[in-house]
Design a protein around this nucleic acid. Structure first.
Lengths: 337, 337
DNA sequence: CTGAAAGCGCTTACAG
DNA sequence: CTGAAAGCGCTTACAG
């Protein structure tokens, strides 16, 4: 049996109120009784029941984090950043993988709310109107990761995807590329997709580069998805010298396929990823990509969330844009005229 | 304000007991009143308070998972396996990164216990006597990941590291290698370290291969750690044709360093990793390694843990050894005599 | 400085 | 089939 506060009280010959006071470090306790209580706690091995405490004080010091897939290195870093900040402020996180599945998301949000999470971080590539409404409605505080809020009720931490894509495209255009392809997600039409597409197309248009949707391929954003898309791109005989992949895994898959099909990377095809996952400069060729400060996104989001949860914390709601960085590496090269 | 059970009761004109019964799907409720309650729940938007429920029924349906670092792809997979199983059985996980730090581990265990986790999965490379005692003592159920228990009080899920290392070494020996180096962790002397070392040395001895501890290098087990060790190995002029790295990141770092120093991999040096992280066959060269079923380790451990937590679940305590697989890939080759 | 008591939001014997 | 009541283990005004 777990020992409870009343056992300690009995042992120390005081009331439970007094024990509670010393456990919670409330000052107005006589030094001597405090000693006695401390002794009793040690002797009995008492550990406060946080559940009971939470029920009483209406605060769990537990945060929920909804993330598509912890296995995706991009999200892994976010979680690590969030958890580290939690540790500092004596919170814990409940982790929930949602796999971009609206049903799972709804269920997950529900249990996080039922478990009385003080706050919830919602990470995704898009925010459906329905999900947005649920998040605004939720009694827990909410901060978005990687997507902004447009309702004025939520906060978000993210990079400017449009600018990032634009800058990346401009670099490749400067290198002489004119014939591009995009390797994007199989289904997605959501926020990040739109933003990046806007950025790429803006760069294309400013430079009078022809582009239409037939140059967008769609598959799972994975090593094998990238492989498949490259296969298709080469087989259908489209004319292209450069590919923008939605993430680095996809880019690496595409690189491998191209190599196997006899292409030299970057001489024959320049290939770019996105996110700068931890291994991007250790592959051969190294992957040209846009670095997102993923750890920081998690850490900043969590900091904001904690402030929302604390009594006199900052309650300003805002979208925070964190800096990105274009990294030009070995997977791309100037076009030879 | 969150709506509570009494609000629903008032709305439906029944007692809280009745509301509780329909919420928990307890059969003996009149169909008609049930309808009325359901309606009231929908109207009020009632969501049960899981904290209050937990306090009453003495069960949180929350599991703790203590893991060195979620950012290490090896552990990421374990967490995913564990979380997926949790989802099936309506549990959630609190994630805690411990960074191999005994202090953090102790603190973490403490809050998981205070938060009344039904069970805890402890993942690590070693189990100190102190930690073992604390885990046995903990009121929450415990299952170990990646390490076995020798006390008879805990369960564990892991591969046989000695056999795995032995088999890997034998493959390389068959290829004609005789001069080996080991790239191991900077500090570690723990369980997994010992087991693997035993396995390697057993293979060496059986084949009359000379080996002593001067052939073990130690550094952080990371891309840059592997890089550093290879640099040192080459610079000190030790004679070797094959390196066993403690994990795949280290192997990849070692490969890159060797390449930069003008060595051809695998022609000049054969390099092996361990774990078969998700990218191991997409690097160039592909990494020879031992695959651990990491997802399964997490999933199985969680299944066992849940059984321990359920009323009439299987309470057998045992160490479960899951199969590993040696993958010979492009980072190694036969030695040319 | 300390204790008795109420209450956090549930569940569940028990009685009817 | 339904409700009144006790109790899960805490915290915290309130009184002394």
């Amino acid at each position: 049996m777990r020992v409870k506060i009343v056992d300690v009280a009995r042992e120390a010959n005081v009331s439970v109120a007094t024990v509670s006071r010393v456990v919670n470090n409330i000052p107005l306790v006589n030094e001597e009784t405090k000693e006695r209580v401390l002794e009793a706690i040690k002797k009995t091995g008492y550990k406060p029941n946080a559940i009971a405490r939470s029920l009483k004080i209406q605060k769990t010091n537990t945060m929920g984090i909804m993330i598509p897939d912890i296995t995706n290195p991009y999200y892994t870093e976010i979680v690590r950043g969030a958890e580290d900040v939690c540790g500092i402020y004596h919170y814990n996180i409940i982790l929930s993988n949602t796999d971009f599945d609206p049903e799972k998301e709804k269920k997950s949000l529900n249990v996080l709310v039922e478990k009385q999470c003080d706050g919830i971080i919602y990470v995704g590539k898009d925010l459906s109107a329905e999900m947005q409404a649920e998040l605004i409605d939720a009694p827990s505080e909410v901060v978005l990761g990687c997507i902004p809020d447009d309702s004025g009720f939520l906060s978000g931490v993210l990079i400017n995807n449009e600018t990032a894509a634009y800058e990346l495209a401009m670099e490749l255009i400067k290198m002489g590329h004119k014939k591009f392809m995009l390797f994007f997600d199989e289904l997605e039409e959501g926020y990040i997709y739109q933003e990046r597409k806007k950025g790429f197309i803006k760069a294309f248009e400013e430079n009078n580069i022809e582009f239409d949707d037939s140059r967008i391929l769609r598959e799972k954003l994975s090593l094998s998805g990238g492989y498949t898309m490259m296969q298709e791109a080469i087989n259908t005989g489209v004319d292209f010298t450069c590919v923008f992949c939605f993430n680095d895994q996809t880019a690496l898959g595409a690189i491998r396929c191209a190599e196997e099909m006899g292409k030299k990377i970057p001489e024959d095809i320049s290939i770019c990823g996105f996110n700068n996952f931890w291994i991007a400069e250790w592959t051969r060729p190294q992957i040209t990509t846009v670095a997102q400060p993923m750890y920081d996104i998690g850490a900043i989001a969590m900091r904001m969330l904690i402030k929302l949860c604390e009594k006199d914390g900052d309650r300003t709601v805002k979208n925070v844009y964190v800096p990105h960085e274009v990294h030009i590496r070995g997977s791309v090269t100037e076009i030879k005229k």
